[in-house]
Amino acid sequence: MQINKAKKWLLIGAAALGFSLSAAAADISGAGATFPYPIYAKWADAYKTLTGVGLNYQSIGSGGGIKQIKAKTVTFGASDMPLKPDDLKTAGLVQFPMIIGGVVPVVHVKGIQAGQLHLDGATIASIYLGDITAWNDPKIKSLNPKLMLPDTAIAPVYRSDGSGTNFLFSDYLSKSSPKFLSTIGANSSVQWPVGIGAKGNEGVANMTTQTDGAIGYVEYAYAKQNKMAFSLLTNKAGGTVAPSAESFQAAAANADWSKADSYYLILTDQGGAKSWPITGASFILVYKQPDDAAAVGEALKFFAWAYKDGATMAAELDYVPLPASLIAQVKKTWTAEITSGGHPIWSGK
């Protein structure tokens, strides 16, 4: 009896061992922004099928990404809010943009479909300040004369965690409303006076869909993938724009990356008739002289692959891939700044 039991356990143990040996382990670890998570996850899946190298990306928010890379618990961090050049220097980090996307306001109001509601920065700012509390408020009505707006209370949903998306959204609202700028301001984490907090782009998307009368803000891929009712916005030039790869592209076209120190560039409220007002780039943070050069090398190979072969996947989710000139500039930065023992880690083209 005893021997049979022992045999059984040995068999199970051997099976488990065999199982574990046959599967490849994840080599690169990253953490941070939820803004680009849908495309990073898609890329990681495709890359693993292609090369067997796994990318374990934990979308915990830009704040979390910055914290984890500073604590050296991950190979790279991801943040939608670019770090200032001084902060980068102090921490010994280098940052570069990976992908460009747009933040869109989404609503969950009975009878309102995607692309029907029209809002502008000042109105949204008033909603999040608590000055507008019902959907049939005259200010919203004036922007949407033909829409049937119900008497439901507005439930603003905001990011409760440290977030680059928060930064982009609050930056846009600060540029649209002086009261917002002075009361709340623009940052990755702000004190919202009203509303419910949710974690990550995922949490905001979920909470908005769950709550009647809710308004939230998410990266466009989330709104698209989950068929949420996004709103149209009035941009700086006065035109009404819908979120799409074209309107994000139009906003990004104005950006002059060659002049930006450490790629510190904010793309909200750009001029141009077709520009989407809440566009932003998502950045990657790695150490200039990393402890684990091999892991960073693998990560850079992944990024290079994503720049080249991942562009189609990105376009499917309405992200804007970086222009070729910017990619070339980024690779030059890799060669110049990311080194180990005096030699650049990036060896490719």
Binding site: I60, G63, K67, D161, G162
Partner: peptide, 18 residues
């Protein structure tokens, strides 16, 4: 109204506290 408790604040924010 929404609020927060000690344990949910920690659970939500700890891994991202910079």
């Amino acid at each position: 109204a929404p609020g927060t408790t000690i344990s949910s604040a920690i659970a939500n924010e700890f891994t991202e506290a910079v």
